[in-house]
Design a binder for these strands. Structure first.
Lengths: 143, 143
DNA sequence: TTAAAACCAGATAAATTTGTCTGATTAAAA
DNA sequence: TTTTAATCAGACAAATTTATCTGGTTTTAA
């Protein structure tokens, strides 16, 4: 197996990155997101609902409703989306599954893995979604 | 969620690291491994069976049987165990779940994630399990 | 030779994650 | 005002992962 993000989180990241490519006050119905990204409609709907609760996106109900970002793209970090969906536990728990892994009671690979995990966390915390607009458009339209 | 290794893989890594701390020709029954590492007996048995098939460990059947490493600890890399259990697909597939993510058709975070993934792969490929003997003993006996 | 202690094999069960369905509510547009 | 198109809520279903059970086979040791 060996995944990093859950499917939900992958889809959530895709969806938010996609929404960041849209014009400002244009709301995006879940069906459109579903089609553009090839994600089952009902599934992405649920994910969008939870991202709405988390305050990352906003929803507009009723006809010609949909979703849009709740903040400026430059204010949304990748880690925000990950935290909302998968949580941050993995950045604080043992990669080998040992109990109570800590600097005090390190697991065998504590050091080696710690470095990598920190780098991953730094990357996700520093990158904001406005940086990915072009690449996202390219990927979605080319793929 | 956000896991890196599956539970199976975590347990497999723990078990092999533990076996590397044992005396050379001493075979280790699955029950002992189960108790030492707090892993359900039947579950770790299955995992040990599959590691046996993969040639990483050897089994001795019958009374006073058990498992031991099939090679010298210095010849077993962490990545070997991961490959045997989880496979290497994740090192070659898109972290955002986009289809056909490649240098040609990169996903939005292709570069950023690629660096991290490569580092993870390098770490797992360079570290051999003999390096962890002491730390493993400490962790198991202290925890 | 026999009993005990281990691995082995395959089925089954439980838990979690992923995905679907139904109907209610909301709000814009005809 | 009514129809239509959307979110929302909660139950349900399927798939995957994790864990357990049962019984068989192997081999040592008493």
């Amino acid at each position: 197996m060996t995944v990093f993000f859950s499917k939900k989180c992958e889809y959530g990241l895709q969806a938010v990155l996609f929404m960041a490519t849209q014009e400002n006050d244009c709301v995006c119905p879940s069906e459109e997101i579903s089609k553009k990204l090839n994600i089952p409609k009902e599934f992405i709907s649920k994910i969008l609902q939870s991202l709405t609760e988390s305050g990352i996106i906003e929803s507009k109900k009723g006809k010609s409703g949909g979703f849009k970002l709740a903040k400026q793209p430059s204010k949304i970090k990748l880690i925000d989306i990950v935290e909302a969906i998968d949580g941050l536990e993995s950045f604080n728990s043992c990669v080998l599954g040992f109990p109570k892994c800590s600097p005090d009671k390190p697991c065998p690979v504590h050091e080696q893995w710690g470095v990598l995990r920190t780098k991953a966390h730094e990357m996700l915390s520093s990158e904001t979604i406005d940086k990915f607009k072009e690449k996202t458009l390219k990927k979605i339209n080319n793929a």
